[in-house]
Simulated scan of single mutants.
Amino acid sequence: MDRMSRTNPRASVHRTVEWVDTDASGHQHNSAIIRWVESAEAELFLRTLKLPDYFPSVPRIHQEIHFKKKLWFGQQITATVGISKLGRTSMTYAFEIHGHPHDGQDGGLAAFGTVTVAHVPPGSAKAQPWPAAVVDAVTSTEGTGI
């Protein structure tokens, strides 16, 4: 089941599971998932949507990860992030991490989940409405299949 709308903005990155990404048994450490998600988030907001001011103002307020398969040292992965909800002061994006076939093992969905961020501009102590540039960038690409 696709957890991300194919009509909302999305972006992917491709990585190799490095030794530093693994635990003592050679499969991914749980923290590697969120690092790959954040790389895809940067791809989406900096390079696809061209919103360089997004990052200094988006603390995470919730994240949820469901682990489905192990990913192994040397395995290729694809991390995809897609915006699933834009609220007045928050945004939720869904993500999926897929492993590619490796050492005789099938690939497939390894992890999925959501991350919710709030817009808290520098100098503010609480969430504020999204700037028009963010709303425009996110909503103008709907329907393009990014």
Rank of each mutant, 00 (worst) to 15 (best):
H100V: 01
K69E: 09
Q28A: 11
Q105K: 11
Q75L: 05
T48A: 11
S25C: 11
W36P: 08
D53W: 00
I77F: 04
S90K: 01
E64P: 06
A111F: 02
R88A: 08
A137H: 04
V138D: 09
P129F: 02
G108I: 09
W19G: 10
N30V: 06
H14L: 03
D23V: 13
A118S: 13
Y54N: 02
V134A: 04
Q75G: 04
D106E: 15
T80M: 01
D103W: 06
P52E: 05
K70L: 14
P129E: 01
Y54F: 14
T139C: 07
G104I: 05
A132K: 15
Q76M: 10
K70I: 00
S39N: 02
L51R: 07
P9C: 09
S31A: 11
T16E: 08
R88P: 01
D106W: 06
E18W: 14
G74C: 14
T144C: 13
W36Y: 03
M91L: 13
T144M: 14
G123E: 07
T80F: 00
K85W: 11
F95G: 00
H102S: 04
W36T: 00
I83E: 03
L46W: 03
L44W: 05
T78P: 07
R47C: 05
G82V: 03
Q128Y: 07
A125R: 00
I65R: 04
I61P: 08
F55K: 04
H119A: 09
A24S: 15
Q63A: 08
T139D: 06
A125V: 02
D23N: 12
R60F: 11
S12A: 08
M91D: 02
S12P: 00
W130P: 01
D2Q: 04
F55Q: 10
F55C: 08
P101I: 05
V115A: 06
I61D: 12
S57G: 08
R88D: 12
L109M: 03
H66C: 05
E43A: 05
Q28V: 02
G87L: 04
T114C: 06
H27G: 06
A11F: 00
S90P: 00
G74N: 11
K50H: 12
M4A: 08
F67N: 07
V138K: 04
V120Y: 05
I97V: 15
T78G: 04
F67H: 13
V37W: 10
T78M: 14
K50Y: 09
K68H: 15
R3I: 12
E18D: 14
A125P: 05
A40W: 01
H29A: 12
D53E: 14
